[in-house]
Amino acid sequence: MANVDLDCAGLSCPVPIVRISRAMKEMSSGDTLTVTASDPSFQADVEAWVRKMGHQLESFSEADGTQTAVVRHA
């Protein structure tokens, strides 16, 4: 049950999702990925991504323009 951090701040669509997808491929069931991003479509995209891929969005928060999503590998 490892956690991996992924910084996608400043990156635009579709790069954050592509990076998340790449990172999650290296991870195993139960691991979490903590992603920080500033892309305005990030919340909608990460939600759609986990739904499609069957993973879980553990939490999503936003502070000072930085969004943080914690995704758990199914």
Partner: peptide
């Protein structure tokens, strides 16, 4: 290309 890369990222 955005849709193509997004689709690939969605598995």
């Amino acid at each position: 290309l955005t849709i193509a890369s997004g689709s690939a990222a969605m598995g």
